[in-house]
Simulated assay, not measured.
Amino acid sequence: MMMRASKLLLLRRPMTTGIAELDGLIGGLRPGALHIFYGDRSITDLVLYRLLVEASRRGEAAYLNNTDYYGEKTLIDATTLSTISKTAGVEPFKVLSAIYCTAAFNARRQISAAYRLAEAVRSSGRVRLIAVHNASAFLDVEGGEASPALVKSISILMEAAFEALAPLVVTAASAAASPGQPAAMPRLPSQLLHRASVMVFFRSEGRGTGGQASQTCLAPSPPVGGLG
């Protein structure tokens, strides 16, 4: 029996984030939809890794890291991911084995990396999450070509996510709040903001001893251009 993808989207339940407060705010991750998590990177990185752990419980995950080759030289922080896996009660090796990883070290490589990851998603048939880490990495350092390259790469992965009925989660930095906006917005091209189903802003509030964040604040972003 054949069924339209739009109907299948309604049949597949949202995926839990593994974080009760976040699930309570957004109702879980919607299959085939674009989710933008932005703000304090020390928080969004941990949230994204928690999502990878949850995806490994159900199947596999596809992960694109936008990173500075000379600064980080890594696809994924295995130590942090292992710690989060153990806390969630999942064997770290199981999580690492369930993730397809690729990286873009500049804006031009974002597109080719997205194509590779989309092909892996289609070949697998078991991907339950597509994650893009630090999507805004090249916007401030590579000029005019960075924005269209990012839009193209996310569009490629959105198509793969819709076909796989998997949520697409993108993390990004935040831009300064502008007049008329009650909160900071993601540091991403406006085309992507209009296509997002969910946007959540993360920031640290309050400081404990040694300057450590004592509380995490998360809130849904305001609508973009009148979109609800």
Rank of each mutant, 00 (worst) to 15 (best):
M2Y: 15
M2H: 14
M3V: 15
M3A: 06
R4H: 10
S6R: 15
L9D: 09
L10H: 13
P14K: 06
T16D: 14
T16K: 11
T17L: 09
T17H: 06
I19V: 15
I19F: 12
E21A: 15
D23R: 02
L25D: 10
G27L: 12
P31W: 03
L34D: 09
F37V: 09
R41W: 13
I43H: 01
T44G: 05
D45K: 11
L48N: 06
R50Q: 14
L52S: 02
L52G: 00
V53H: 06
V53S: 02
E54W: 06
A55R: 00
G59A: 10
Y70A: 15
Y70N: 10
K73N: 12
T74C: 02
I76Q: 01
T80G: 12
T87I: 12
P92L: 07
V95W: 04
C101K: 03
N106C: 01
N106R: 10
R108A: 13
Q110H: 09
I111G: 05
S112L: 05
A118F: 06
V121H: 03
R122T: 11
S123V: 11
G125S: 06
L129N: 04
A131K: 06
A131D: 05
V132D: 00
H133Y: 14
A135P: 04
S136A: 07
F138V: 07
L139P: 06
D140F: 13
D140S: 15
G143K: 08
L150P: 05
L150V: 12
I154N: 04
S155Y: 04
I156A: 00
L157K: 00
E163S: 13
E163M: 07
A166P: 00
P167T: 00
V169T: 03
V169P: 02
V169L: 03
V170C: 02
A173K: 12
A175Y: 01
A176P: 07
S178D: 11
S178C: 02
G180C: 10
G180R: 12
Q181W: 12
A184H: 02
M185C: 05
M185K: 04
R187F: 13
R187H: 14
L188I: 08
P189M: 09
P189L: 09
R203Y: 12
G210A: 08
G211W: 08
G211S: 12
P222D: 13
G228A: 15
